Amino acid sequence: MSTSDILRVEDLRIRYEKGRSIWGIPRYGDVVHGVSFSVKQGETFGLVGESGSGKSTIGKAILRQIPVIGGTITFDGQRITDWPDGQTPLSYRRAVQVVFQSPRLSLNARMLARDTVAEAVAFHLGYKGSQLDGHVAQLFDDVGLPRHFGERYPDELSGGQQQRVAIARALACDPKLVICDEAVSALDVSTQAQVIALLRRLQQERGLSYVFISHDLGVVRNLCHSVGVLQHGRFTDLGSTQSVFERPKSQYTRDLLSAIPRVPGKAA
């Protein structure tokens, strides 16, 4: 494994149970078919594809939320697919965090924004009292939220503000890798741009790596260093963002690229 790779996925295969026969025998459907890619330290890898392509399934496998049937996932030199199912070290859960699509659903509506972030800090770092308060305040500063917003409930915040709280929560334990699962797709265009700028700034400041899962190639082109285009659990294109967007190999990728909205009068 290259020292510049924080994550390496090799020949990953995943299947789901689709039901059972009248005799109770499970029926399976393969979802991911031998996918391989790597994520460099401090860079963003984009997983792109239509709904059902397998991109979120790969994210769940990296987070160890679902079992895999073949292949390996190596994180920071450790082959995490060697660990028994259901047994994930706390050190890994600290190092790999996630930001979900809908901040409104991922945040506890009954908890103040400050308490949502504080809970993660206290659990992972064990901070209490003034040390906890100071760390939470710094996280609010880091994601561009006024500290007094911490005294609001999620429903009292805009979608972009909610997502900033979710990002602050993900940063609570100083992770190395963040899985962004459609993290801006529920936001309006102007708020998307602000959150993307935030993610880029945090990456530069903290050396973060991202796996950015999205169906929006325009967003991916703006944020990602490399990209894999998924169709039915297989890559149709894989490489640097520039090479995939400028020299796509498959008709599927060309069709996706042709669907990106163009601004009238603006050169492609």
Rank of each mutant, 00 (worst) to 15 (best):
1 M>F: 11
3 T>K: 13
7 L>T: 04
7 L>C: 02
8 R>I: 11
8 R>T: 15
16 Y>E: 10
18 K>N: 13
18 K>F: 03
19 G>L: 07
19 G>N: 12
19 G>Y: 09
23 W>L: 15
28 Y>S: 08
29 G>R: 14
30 D>T: 15
33 H>C: 01
33 H>S: 02
34 G>W: 09
34 G>R: 12
37 F>Q: 08
39 V>L: 15
42 G>E: 00
43 E>N: 10
44 T>I: 14
46 G>F: 03
47 L>V: 01
49 G>D: 03
50 E>R: 12
53 S>N: 02
54 G>N: 08
58 I>F: 00
59 G>R: 06
62 I>H: 01
65 Q>N: 12
69 I>S: 14
74 T>P: 00
74 T>N: 12
76 D>W: 02
77 G>V: 07
78 Q>C: 04
81 T>E: 12
83 W>M: 15
83 W>A: 09
84 P>H: 08
85 D>P: 13
87 Q>C: 09
87 Q>V: 14
88 T>R: 14
88 T>W: 07
91 S>Y: 03
97 Q>F: 00
98 V>Q: 07
99 V>E: 04
108 N>D: 15
113 A>R: 02
114 R>V: 11
116 T>I: 14
118 A>S: 13
119 E>R: 01
119 E>P: 02
120 A>I: 00
124 H>K: 03
125 L>R: 15
126 G>A: 00
128 K>H: 15
131 Q>T: 14
135 H>T: 13
140 F>A: 06
141 D>L: 01
142 D>F: 02
145 L>H: 08
147 R>H: 09
148 H>W: 15
149 F>S: 06
150 G>Y: 05
154 P>V: 06
155 D>V: 10
161 Q>Y: 11
164 R>V: 07
168 A>H: 06
169 R>T: 06
176 K>P: 03
177 L>F: 07
180 C>D: 04
180 C>K: 00
183 A>H: 08
183 A>T: 05
186 A>M: 13
188 D>V: 09
191 T>A: 11
191 T>Q: 09
193 A>R: 11
195 V>W: 08
195 V>L: 03
198 L>F: 04
202 L>M: 13
202 L>Q: 11
203 Q>H: 11
203 Q>E: 03
203 Q>L: 06
206 R>Y: 13
210 Y>H: 03
211 V>G: 10
217 L>V: 09
223 L>C: 08
223 L>D: 09
224 C>M: 02
226 S>W: 04
227 V>N: 13
230 L>R: 06
233 G>Y: 11
233 G>Q: 08
236 T>D: 13
237 D>M: 01
237 D>S: 00
237 D>H: 01
238 L>R: 13
242 Q>K: 15
243 S>F: 05
247 R>V: 07
248 P>M: 02
250 S>I: 09
250 S>H: 14
257 L>W: 13
257 L>F: 03
261 P>H: 04
261 P>Y: 08
261 P>D: 06
262 R>I: 13
265 G>K: 01
268 A>E: 14
